[in-house]
Structures are given as C-alpha cells and as structure tokens.
C-alpha cells in the first residue's frame, strides 16, 4: 500500500505540485473505498471534503420534479470531485452517487481552506488547479447544453 503522499503525487490533479505542499495536503488526507449505490453526499449538505478519485465511477445527480434523478456527469479515475468546499456557502449543489466501486483520497476541505489563507502561494497552486478543472467542465457542459444529438443535429 503506497503512502498517501505517493498516491497524491501520482494523481493527475497534483502534477507539478512541489513536494512540501504534497506533504502538507497529506496531513489533511485519508483513503477510503465506497461500494456501488452509496451516496458520497447529497444536494444541500455541508461540503466538507474534496474527493480525489483513483478508481471507479461516481455520478453527479440532481433532482428535477417530474423527471426524477438525472445524472449530469460521471467522474472517473484520475479525476476530482467537488469544488463547493472551496467557496461559500460550502454546500453541495449536486448529489454524488457511486456507480462503480470507488477508491478515493478524501481531503479535509476546511483544513485546505485554512492553509490557503495562511500560505497564499499554496492557495494559488491549489486554486489554479481547481480553476482548470472548472474551465474544462464548463466547456464540456456548454457543449452538452447544445443538445448536439437533438432534433437539429
């Protein structure tokens, strides 16, 4: 079993992050496994953690009145889940349901925020990476919104 530091260092999200910071993050980290159908969190709950996914698949869901639960995105190995822990009001906007057995490193959101506040260089490195993920998701979502395969595709 690799150390948390080793695992963090090899995850694509942390590519290029200086080792001292990896060690700092490891202090806020724990490793866990989740079986299929389990909910990591529900819409509206406190966003306490940042999930670094190593294995498996998690579905981001929302509930639309007469349509039931709708999956809007799936997050898989090598990706990260959640950024609501970084921004007030620190509440989840979607639910996360495990689709395939998932292994993840869970980072303490509050602890990471405090560290960002104390060390702005660390804060920049972390926020920069989160912003990049958000940019990619936004671009993809915009294309999803086009309903490309719909009637006028």
């Amino acid at each position: 079993m690799q150390t948390l530091e080793a695992l963090l260092a090899e995850h694509p999200f942390f590519t290029g992050l200086e080792l001292p910071y990896i060690q700092v993050i490891a202090n806020f980290a724990s490793y866990d496994h989740y079986s299929a159908h389990k909910y990591l969190f529900h819409e509206g709950e406190q966003a306490a953690h940042f999930y670094i996914i190593y294995e498996g698949k998690v579905a981001l869901e929302t509930f639309a009145a007469e349509r039931g639960m709708i999956t809007i995105e799936t997050i898989e190995a090598g990706e990260v889940l959640g950024w609501s822990w970084l921004f007030p009001p620190y509440r989840w906007h979607f639910a996360a349901r495990v689709v395939e057995p998932t292994s993840a490193i869970i980072l303490d959101g509050g602890g990471l925020r405090a560290k960002c506040q104390e060390d702005h260089h660390f804060g920049y490195e972390l926020t920069k990476r989160v912003a990049h993920i958000m940019m990619q998701r936004l671009q993809a979502t915009r294309l999803q919104l086009l309903d490309l395969y719909g009637m006028h595709a």
Partner: peptide
C-alpha cells in the same frame, strides 16, 4: 450520454 437517469451505469458527459 449527455444525461441519464440513475439506471444508467455508463459515463455521462461529452
């Protein structure tokens, strides 16, 4: 798929 109900176990996304 672009979106799915919870019965779908595949990927959702572009």
């Amino acid at each position: 798929v672009d979106r799915a109900t919870s019965s779908w176990c595949g990927s959702v996304g572009l």
